[in-house]
Write a protein that binds this DNA or RNA. Structure first.
Length: 549
RNA sequence: GGCCCUGUGGUCAAGCGGUUAAGACGGAGCCCUCUCAAGGCUCAAUCCCGGGUUCGAUUCCCGGCAGGGUCACCA
């Protein structure tokens, strides 16, 4: 068979470059020794979730801790998956979490010398190599229809054989020259398959940067490398792109592990050196009784937008992910509480080998810790940003008074105290903490534990002596006096020593006052709260609080 | 089902043949305290099972079992 002629007929493109030429078009990168070139290679569905961020973070850290390059490549070989604006969305999402690309699709950079970064735009490159493979007799056209393939698969399943296109099932592998040209003349659609020379009896051991040694069987499937639309499959595009974009470290989900034999064979056949692979375990989620990996389809609540809406502090999400990525990161954080996570020595081989369950409690903890480290001004900015996008009209009005909010923030963050408070976990919840400082959102629940007479006595008693100029101890001693007057113990020690001798204690008096002022029995320092509200409003609340009793 | 990966408290996990089996989150309790938060202290809770190898296995080997992944002209 004249393979050269066949290749020309199958890949009729004019002006195709010779495969060898690409080696000089995309030369080896000049980078320091040990520098890693990594990439994020999403399909343009636009949907990006926590798992993608997790993976992107690993890529980004590996590149930037070694002086390497982190680039964005768009795997748009499947037309059906394309969503408008998806690429911008990916970039924007990652940027929100502080992750930036050095080069790639839609990235403005002088480094963009390895493009195009959209696979569809690289069709000529792939086709040049496919053509060469056909010439070498290492690839062939297949005219099987989807129905035929389904039929074969069904048969194989029934007879409990391995499914797929291999051995005797690779019907088109041995098509005669006449048959091929006949099909071609009839304009039958075709794909190009790899003529695999592998044998599943042979084992290959290779070293994964995360999982260590992995033994797989050789590939013997004649996989499709060029689809009938002339665009390659993932497998083929991966081999070509990561070779010519000079990727050194391919970090991808462990779901790719099973197709690794294909990639090994493809690299061999194309004469490429294999990159180092690092297969990350997937982030898992509890689904009823069992856990499963996070899914784009089933878990929309894990989209990155979800975290934005909930008002998580972006850096907190990143730091949480870092603890999952490298368990010793947490230890490092304890030693360097104020350190930049970028100073942490990220190690790919420290990554976990088993799928981690996504732990919301932990994220919440990291998030409130991060927010507690903010200055009130920075916290204001963070909350304001959330309010502008997701808050209520009332929230937006409230946030116009920056000075007032700052006063509140000083209080609920515990600024100036020895230890910061950690009241704000995320913006959505934190903004609600401000509600009782504004009359239009103050919704008290007057659930007193004492009779109306006692409550009124405490409220009236305190209203008479309250002076906003009082410092905290004075304020409290006044409260003690009021407590005493209604038959409460003024000192907690007295009360504890003999609880039955009193109707209640200062603590109870404080509770009554607190319910009146903030509408609930719990809040930060009451004296300060009353000060923020101002005398008039504070006293009005004391009066209003008696309405229902 | 075949193949591959993984298996230490509820969760994330250190550990690399001899340990009182770290730490963090969560839980319980105590202290502090005008309540809450924060903080400090304390407690409960773990090596999947069965065989080997070894003086000794959480650690090494084999076999189960369990969980996960994957078997497309999707990535």
């Amino acid at each position: 068979m004249n393979l050269k002629e066949l290749a020309k007929r199958l890949i009729p493109d004019e002006n195709l470059l010779e495969p060898e030429e690409y080696e000089s078009i995309y030369p080896q990168r000049e980078l320091p020794k040990g520098a890693q070139v990594t990439r994020l290679a999403p399909s343009p569905t636009g949907f990006i979730h926590l798992g993608n961020l997790y993976s992107a973070l690993a890529d980004e850290r590996c590149a930037h801790t070694t002086g390497g390059i982190f680039y964005l490549r768009i795997e748009d070989t499947d037309e059906k998956r394309k969503v408008e604006g998806a690429v911008e969305s990916v970039i924007r999402s990652l940027k929100y979490f502080g992750i930036k690309f050095d080069e790639g699709a839609e990235i403005e950079s002088p480094l963009n010398k390895y493009g195009p970064y959209y696979q569809r735009a690289r069709a000529q490159i792939y086709r040049s190599f496919v053509k060469r493979l056909i010439e070498q007799g290492l690839a062939y056209p297949c005219f099987c229809t989807a129905e035929e393939l389904d039929e074969v698969r069904e048969k194989q399943t029934q007879s409990k054989e391995t499914t797929g296109y291999y051995g005797v099932y690779a019907k088109c592998r041995n098509l005669s020259e006449q048959e091929i040209y006949k099909n071609l003349d009839e304009k039958k659609p075709f794909v190009i398959r790899l003529k695999s020379s592998g044998n599943i009896e042979n084992k290959i051991t290779f070293r994964d940067a995360i999982k260590g040694d992995i033994t797989v069987t050789e590939n013997d499937q004649d996989v499709v490398i060029l689809k009938s639309d002339g665009i390659p499959t993932y497998h083929f595009a991966h081999a070509i792109d990561d070779h010519f974009m000079r990727t050194t470290l391919v970090i991808r989900g462990e779901e790719w592990l099973s197709s690794l034999p294909i990639h090994i064979e493809l690299h061999k056949v194309l004469g490429f050196k294999q990159p180092t692979y690092a297969h990350t375990c997937s982030l898992m989620k509890m689904d009823g009784e069992t856990k499963r990996k996070l899914s784009k389809r089933k878990d929309p609540e894990l989209s990155l937008d979800y975290y934005r809406k909930a008002g998580y502090f972006p850096l907190a999400v990143v730091k949480y992910l870092m603890t999952v990525l490298n368990s010793n990161f947490e230890e490092w954080t304890l030693k360097n509480p104020d350190g930049d996570y970028r100073d942490f020595k990220f190690k790919i081989d420290k990554m976990g080998k088993s799928g981690a369950l996504f732990d919301l409690d932990k994220l919440n903890d990291v998030s409130k810790t991060e927010i507690s480290k903010l200055s009130p001004e920075a916290c204001y900015d963070f909350l304001k940003e959330w309010v502008d996008e997701f808050g209520t009209d009332a929230d937006r009005t409230h946030f116009k008074d920056r000075e007032y909010i700052l006063k509140i923030l000083n209080l609920i963050m515990g600024t100036g105290g020895k230890k910061r408070r950690k009241d704000i976990e995320r913006a959505e919840q934190g903004v609600r903490l401000l509600d009782y400082f504004f009359d239009d959102t103050f919704e008290p629940e007057y659930a007193y534990r004492f009779d109306g007479q006692t409550v009124a006595a405490v409220l009236d008693g305190f209203a008479k002596v309250y002076d906003p100029a009082d410092d905290n101890p004075t304020w409290f001693s006044k409260l003690k006096e009021v407590a005493k007057a209604v038959g409460f113990a003024a000192e907690m020690s007295e009360y504890k020593a003999n609880p039955t001798a009193f109707k209640g204690s200062v603590s109870d008096a404080a509770e009554i006052l607190r319910i009146a002022v903030v509408g609930s029995p719990n809040s930060p320092d009451l004296c300060t709260i009353m000060g923020i509200l101002g005398k008039e409003r504070a006293l009005k609340r004391l009066t209003d609080a008696k309405k229902d009793i």
